[in-house]
């Protein structure tokens, strides 16, 4: 429970700072902190492989890409003029209201489901999660039941790669 509260607090605080921060460089780094907190939660959920994937792929690869682009476009001049948190006043209030409404709505949905007492809701905590930790089981499911989706994803990656190269190429 302590781990959960700590990780949850870090994740929410870091995500808030990502969204509200003025310097994109700091935003990227705080997002990595938030990812690390989520990885800790995944370990608590008996998903060590997911936690490691979160760090290797999300923090280690995708975020480096963001970092590269921020450095390339020279982050210092961001957020001038009509920039980000400088919005202030009404838009900010509207956004905050939107966020609270959305969070409340989602929380309400969660609570309602629990009150309705879905059978799986309480089943988990007592059950043993060690079977879920096995990378072997995970691989088995991934390469049998989801094999088509897996192959399609590889196609998606290739398309995205070609697309990114074409888009970012300097026209000569």
């Amino acid at each position: 429970m302590l781990l959960f509260l700590l990780a949850a607090a870090v994740a929410v605080a870091a995500s808030l700072a990502v969204v509200l921060g003025r310097n994109p460089m700091h935003s990227v780094l705080l997002l990595i902190v938030s990812f690390a907190a989520l990885a800790a939660l995944y370990i608590g959920l008996d998903a060590p492989f997911a936690a490691v994937v979160q760090i290797i792929i999300y923090a280690g690869a995708i975020m480096v890409l963001f970092l590269f682009v921020v450095m390339l476009l020279n982050a210092h001049r961001e957020d001038e003029g009509t920039g980000g948190a400088a919005l202030g006043g009404r838009p900010l209030a509207a956004g905050a209201a939107l966020a609270i409404v959305l969070a409340a709505e989602l929380a309400w949905a969660v609570l309602r489901t629990r009150r309705a007492g879905g059978s799986w809701m309480g089943a988990g905590p007592e059950s043993d999660g060690t079977a879920l930790q096995s990378v072997r089981t995970l691989g088995g499911v991934l390469y049998s039941e989801y094999s088509l989706a897996f192959e399609v994803t590889s196609l998606l990656i290739i398309v995205a790669m070609v697309g990114a190269v074409v888009l970012a190429r300097r026209e000569s």
Binding site: A8, A11, V12, S15, L16, V18, V19, G21, P24, S27, L41, F66, V69, V70, L73, E78, D79, T82, G83, G84, A85, L87, P91, L92, G95, A96, L98, A99, I100, L102, A103, L106, A107, V110
Partner: peptide
């Protein structure tokens, strides 16, 4: 609940921020 809060925070970012990277 945590997931809902994070999602809401992300949504606010998408709506409010005026910077493609953010």
């Amino acid at each position: 609940f945590l997931s809902a809060v994070l999602f809401a925070v992300g949504t606010v970012g998408v709506f409010l921020r005026r910077n493609v990277i953010t």
